[in-house]
Simulated scan of single mutants.
Amino acid sequence: MRKHAVTLALLGAIVVVLAVSFFLGGLRQDPAAEEGFGGTDSQVTSILDENGVTPWFQPVVELGSGELESGLFAAQAALGGIALGYCVGRLQGRRRTESAPVGVPVSTATAR
């Protein structure tokens, strides 16, 4: 029962931190800005454009919107997470089979 209370308290703390950050971020947002949570890349790009710096190269593909760009980034992160999880699972399975005694099934050897 105590484990569940700690878990619920941690989840509640996460929700409170997120809510406060969104509230404070909304207060600091410039009404003329395009995005509420712009990154440093966009700030540096605007500063360089103001100073007349010309880019060295052009993007290979121009994406239509910021939503498409963030969606592709999320898909890339998901694929990376899947690959990392697969590799960690394979290494864990290899370690279990190598540490199992000969002649004992892996499922009973790891249950100890």
Rank of each mutant, 00 (worst) to 15 (best):
R94W: 07
T108A: 10
L79H: 00
E69H: 06
S46G: 04
R90Q: 11
P55R: 11
Q76E: 11
I82K: 08
G71K: 02
S21P: 00
A78R: 10
A74R: 08
S46K: 12
G25D: 08
T54S: 14
V20K: 00
T108C: 02
F22I: 11
Q43N: 02
G66M: 12
N51M: 10
V104R: 10
L84W: 13
S99K: 13
V102H: 14
Q43L: 08
R90E: 09
G71E: 01
R2L: 05
P31W: 01
V61I: 14
D41A: 15
E35D: 10
A13Q: 01
T54H: 12
F22R: 07
V6Q: 10
F22S: 01
G39H: 05
L48A: 10
A77H: 07
A77E: 08
Y86D: 05
L68R: 07
Q29R: 14
L11W: 09
E67G: 15
E98I: 00
G89Y: 09
G38Y: 03
F73K: 14
A75N: 05
E34A: 15
N51H: 08
L24C: 08
T54G: 02
P31S: 09
V102D: 15
F57Q: 07
L84P: 00
T110G: 05
E62K: 14
Q58N: 03
A9E: 12
A19E: 09
D30Y: 04
E50K: 14
G71S: 06
V88L: 15
A75C: 08
R2W: 06
V88T: 08
L68V: 10
V44S: 02
